[in-house]
Simulated assay, not measured.
Amino acid sequence: MNSKNVVTIMDIGFVNKTKEEFLRDCVKPRLENEEKCFIVTANPEIVMKAREDQAYKEVIQEADYVIPDGIGIVKAAGWMKQPLKERIAGFDLVVDLLQYANERGLSCYFLGAQAHVNEKAVAAVRKEYPNVTIAGNHHGFFDLDDLSIVEAVKESNADIVLVALGLPRQELWINQHYHHFHKGVFIGVGGTLDGLAGDVPRAPKIWIKLNLEWLYRIIKQPSRIKRIGKVFEFMLRVLVKKS
């Protein structure tokens, strides 16, 4: 990707495009040509994990695209005088991909989350996007080295593979087994299957507009509050480096 379309934060290069530009220029051509690509939906937690773990950093750096999924990333880029065009929320990107798949009759594999969440997400997609072919699905409780999972995904010949194993497992799984595949948009989607299943409702639009989706999620999932420390550390490190 052209350097002007990338903003680097803590050695991680983020796509500097709007969501629509990213889909048009980067993702849809891969789908149309039956090529493969690896997308990381990165928030401050992923950047901090990469900072602490060199092997994980290399996995992120080897991805085809890293999108700024997190208002903290967008704010940090602004402080660094390298503004990003917009935040590209992973959930929104997945919804757009499912809509596109529905229009084109593409297939999708759902890998990850708890078994009942996975099944509910698949059922919801069947109802909302009836033209999407469900290539297959499997819960997220398996060993990353389990080649039977890799074979199942490969045999499905899915156009889109949603990997919801949480960080760092989802990125590690994709990176470790990417060479087995000749096609497919592979994207680490964190808790997106929970959202599709309806188990974790998306924040109301006004919260998203005010960049307070993170606070809404903490209110709904208090266990997430322990993760906020990494976000504040990320912001502090960016500010200190800037000064």
Rank of each mutant, 00 (worst) to 15 (best):
Q99T: 14
I134Q: 05
F142I: 07
I206G: 03
K75E: 05
D92Q: 11
C26E: 14
A123Q: 11
K230R: 10
A121V: 07
V238D: 01
A124F: 03
R126M: 02
P130D: 11
I160A: 01
F110A: 02
G140Y: 03
Y56N: 11
T18K: 09
E155W: 02
R51L: 13
M10S: 07
K220S: 13
L196K: 02
I60V: 15
G78L: 07
A197I: 07
D146Y: 10
E155F: 01
V153R: 00
I67Y: 05
L215Q: 03
E86R: 10
N5Y: 09
E86M: 07
N102D: 15
G198W: 05
H138K: 14
V74W: 05
K17C: 03
V153D: 04
C26R: 08
V125S: 02
Q61V: 10
H180A: 14
N16K: 10
A158G: 10
C37W: 01
K220N: 15
W173L: 01
G112H: 01
K242P: 00
V200G: 00
C26S: 13
I218R: 08
D92H: 10
F234D: 04
L144F: 08
D96H: 10
N137V: 00
P168V: 05
I134T: 12
F91N: 00
I12F: 03
E34A: 06
F181V: 07
K220E: 10
V163G: 00
N16W: 09
